[in-house]
Amino acid sequence: MKFGILINEGPFTHQASDSAYRFAEAVLARGHEIYRVFFYHDGVYNSNRLSQPQTDDRNLVALWSKLGTEHGIDLVVCVGAALRRGVKDEVLAEGFRISGLGQLVEAGIQADRLVVFGD
């Protein structure tokens, strides 16, 4: 089964990104496919490679980046939400790409399930 995931919050302030990450891992472990993870609202901050948490903390940007590149998951950051928050190509971690909101709608169409994580 193909899953789509929408993340509405950035890392650290809310649990949303953590929950989505654990969920994404479990989706793959269950033998399903992740069609796309779409980052919207403050969720775009999950792609900022300048994020540098303390060494004893989890690094959500790095975790998403690794999950995306290792499993070929499409990690899409909303361009409109990203630009107004100063997230641009030059700060994107590996595996993320910036694109339009149409990618979210398309994920809703193409995936069998869409799960939203937010505040």
Binding site: F23, A26, R113, V115, V116, F117, D119
Partner: peptide
Amino acid sequence: DYAGFVDLVAEHHVTQSWL
């Protein structure tokens, strides 16, 4: 657990988050 979370999403036609 999270695996059960995934199974629940798969078993139901649509998931709605009450954000």
